[in-house]
Amino acid sequence: MKKVLFGLVFLLSQVSFAEDEVKKLPPLDPGYMGVHGMVLVTHGSSIYASHMPLYNKPHNVQLLYKLDNNDLAVLQTVRDSQLITIKPKPFNLQRLMRGEKMVIEADLYAGHFERDGMLVYSNISLSFDKQLYVRTFDDIKPSSTKQEYDIVSLRKNYKFYIHRIQQAPSFDHILGVDLEAGCLSRFNTSSAVPKETELQYKFINCGTIKPLYFETEDFQAADSH
């Protein structure tokens, strides 16, 4: 009986501790409220959402999440399209920055939702399940021909290579890489904003590569917003 009571007290104390941890989260910064466009990419049967950053708040964050998706039609749409973006309903990006799980309502577009993309699904629910990468622009470096990529490991040997965006002019770039033998995450390019073909050539020794996203227009001026 004593063991049962001790176990119950211990369990209740853990629940109370967990509640205290939740209560200790700082209040959300309202400055991160907005419409946060994202690009969707796939690996296998999984969908990933990458925030489409800009230099200015509330969009000055590189962020990658894995979605919890059971909709086969959405998976096939993302997998079979060259570019899929979403325009979510306004929400506070800081919730994803600190790793929360949340459901976001969004419109899904074939192409860029701000550049004549075609609406495919309206007001669908997307479940953001696991944060895989987050980087704010607090430490952003000056524009340079020296490029650096962060690496996000997925299952088996597959990895996402994510370019660390620099001050303008720069670019956003995501690659899927399988069997990364001889793969470099730091290298020089011919200019601060090289062509995508030059970047792909830099990864030629990485095994199988899959270009996922490349964006330059949003990073040509420091006041892009």
Rank of each mutant, 00 (worst) to 15 (best):
I165Q: 06
S45T: 06
Q94K: 08
L11P: 12
K195I: 04
H36N: 00
V78A: 01
M102Q: 15
D150R: 00
P27F: 04
S191Q: 09
Q167R: 14
Q200W: 01
V103D: 15
K89G: 06
T42H: 08
G37F: 02
A49H: 03
N56K: 15
D68C: 00
S190I: 07
V74Y: 01
A192V: 07
N56E: 15
G44W: 06
E19G: 10
I140V: 13
H59M: 08
D29A: 09
Q131C: 06
N92T: 09
L67S: 01
K23P: 11
T197V: 11
A181D: 14
G176N: 05
R98E: 12
R135Y: 02
A181C: 05
H112C: 02
N70Y: 11
S153N: 11
Y201S: 12
L63N: 04
P90Y: 05
L108A: 00
Y121A: 08
L25T: 11
L212V: 03
D218V: 03
S191R: 10
G182D: 08
M52P: 09
D139N: 14
F160E: 00
L5K: 11
N92A: 07
C206R: 00
K89R: 15
S170N: 07
H36E: 00
F91W: 09
L93F: 10
S191F: 09
R164P: 11
E196H: 09
V15Y: 14
S46D: 14
T189E: 11
H112N: 15
I165G: 09
L212G: 02
T85A: 03
Y121G: 05
H51K: 04
T77I: 02
V103L: 03
A106Q: 05
V74K: 00
L12K: 05
F171C: 06
G7F: 07
A110C: 01
V9G: 07
I86E: 03
M102N: 06
F187V: 05
M102E: 13
F171T: 03
L154N: 03
H43S: 08
K24T: 11
V9N: 08
T189D: 11
F17L: 11
L119Q: 07
L8A: 13
Q167L: 12
T145W: 09
I204L: 04
N157H: 11
Y32E: 07
M52S: 06
T189N: 08
L25D: 13
I204M: 04
V9F: 15
S143T: 14
C183A: 07
F214I: 02
F10K: 08
V35T: 14
L212A: 02
Q76F: 10
S81H: 09
